[in-house]
Simulated scan of single mutants.
Amino acid sequence: MDIQEIIEFYTTAPLTFLDVITEKISSETVVTNYKTMTNAAGLIFPINGVADVKIEGKNYRLEKGQIIHAGPNLSIQRTITSDTKFEYAVIHFQLSDGENSKFPLYNRHFALQVGEQLKLMNLLQQLIQNYVMGSHLSFLQSKALFFNILEEIILVIKMRDYQYKKENITLITEYMQENYTKNMTVMDIANHFKMERRKLSYLFEKKMGVSPNVYLTVLRIQKSKVLLRTSHLSVKDIAEKVGYTDYFYFSRVFKKITGLSPSQFRKHIN
C-alpha cells in the first residue's frame, strides 16, 4: 500500500465521524462470517491481547502498534489468539455521498503500522470517554478528537516511512560498497531490495544528492584509482576488479570523470 496515497486520502477525503465502539472478547470466542457496517468504514484499534482477522480473504494480525482500516460491507473472520481477553475499539466514519470514485481507499482494507504510540492511545481513550457521555457538546468534542486522531496517524506513518526510507538507503549504499566488484546494475540492486527501480532511484537521489548509477560509477572509479596507485595490475584487470567487463568502456568512463585515461593517471601519480 502506497503511504502517500493513504496520507492523501486521510487529509483530503470529506470524512464524517459517526461513533466509536469498544468490545472485550474471551480467548475461546471465534466469530466468523460477519460484515463491517454497510454504510460506514472503520478504524480498528487493538487495545489489549492479540487476534487474527481475515478480511475479504486477507490475513491481518490485530495487536498493539497496528491499526486496520476496513471499508463498508466487508466480510470478516476473527480468531482470538492470546490467552488474555482481546479488547479493541472501532471508530466508524462515513465518506460524503458521491465521493467514492475519488477516494477508492475508503472501500478497501489495509493495515497502518503506527507502533505503540502513547499519544495516539490517549486520544483514543479521550474519544471513547467523550462519546459515552452522550451530550451534544461531548459529540462535538468527539468529532474534533476523531480528526486529531487522523492527524496523529498521518504524522506517525510519515515519520515511520521517512525512517524506513532512510535506513533502506543506508543499506543500499552498504550493499553497493560490498558488491561494486560485480557486474551489477541499478536494476539488479532494485531487484535485490525488492523495490521498483524508479522508486529506488527517486529515494536514493533525494537522500544522497546523486542517482544510484552515478554513485556506483564514482565508487568504482575511486576504487580503480586506488588500484592504479597501489598495484601493478593491468588496466584491463583493474577494470574487471571494479565491476567492468568492457575495458574500453571503463577507460571512457574513467577519463570522463578524472580527465585522464587510466594509463595517463598511473603515469601522472608515479
Results as ranks from 00 to 15, higher is better:
M1H: 14
M1R: 12
E5P: 05
I6H: 03
T11G: 04
P14A: 05
T16Q: 12
T16H: 12
T16C: 10
F17Y: 11
F17D: 02
D19V: 04
I21T: 12
I21K: 11
E23V: 15
I25T: 05
I25V: 04
I25Y: 03
S26A: 13
S27F: 12
T29H: 15
T29S: 13
T29Q: 15
V30N: 03
V30F: 14
V31Q: 13
T36W: 01
T38R: 09
T38K: 11
A40V: 10
A40C: 04
G42H: 03
G49D: 03
V50S: 15
V50E: 15
D52Y: 04
K54G: 01
I55F: 06
G57P: 03
G57Q: 03
G57I: 02
K58M: 06
K58A: 07
L62G: 00
E63D: 05
I67S: 00
I68L: 07
G71P: 01
G71C: 02
S75F: 06
Q77L: 12
Q77C: 15
T79M: 07
S82G: 13
D83M: 11
D83P: 11
D83V: 10
F86T: 15
Y88I: 11
V90N: 02
V90C: 00
I91R: 00
H92Y: 14
F93I: 02
F93G: 01
F93H: 01
L95N: 08
G98D: 00
G98L: 06
E99N: 13
N100C: 14
F103T: 02
F103S: 04
P104G: 10
P104S: 11
Y106F: 05
H109L: 00
A111C: 05
A111F: 00
Q113M: 05
V114L: 01
V114I: 04
E116F: 10
L118R: 14
L124P: 04
Q125V: 00
Q126S: 11
I128Y: 00
Q129N: 08
N130R: 04
Y131G: 02
M133T: 13
G134H: 00
H136D: 10
L137R: 06
F139W: 07
A144N: 13
L145V: 03
N148S: 14
L150G: 01
E152Q: 11
V156L: 15
I157S: 05
D161H: 15
N168A: 13
T170V: 14
L171Q: 09
T173E: 06
N183Y: 13
M184H: 10
M184E: 11
V186H: 06
V186G: 09
N191P: 09
F193L: 08
K194V: 15
K194I: 04
K194E: 15
M195Y: 08
R197N: 09
K199W: 13
F204H: 11
F204P: 07
E205W: 06
E205G: 10
K207N: 12
S211F: 12
N213D: 12
Y215M: 03
T217C: 07
T217A: 09
L227A: 07
T230P: 03
H232Y: 06
H232W: 07
L233F: 07
S234F: 02
V235K: 01
I238A: 05
A239V: 10
V242D: 00
T245W: 08
Y247R: 09
F248K: 14
F250Q: 02
F250C: 07
R252M: 08
F254V: 04
K256E: 10
G259L: 03
Q264G: 10
Q264C: 06
Q264F: 08
F265H: 14
R266Y: 13
R266E: 14
H268L: 07
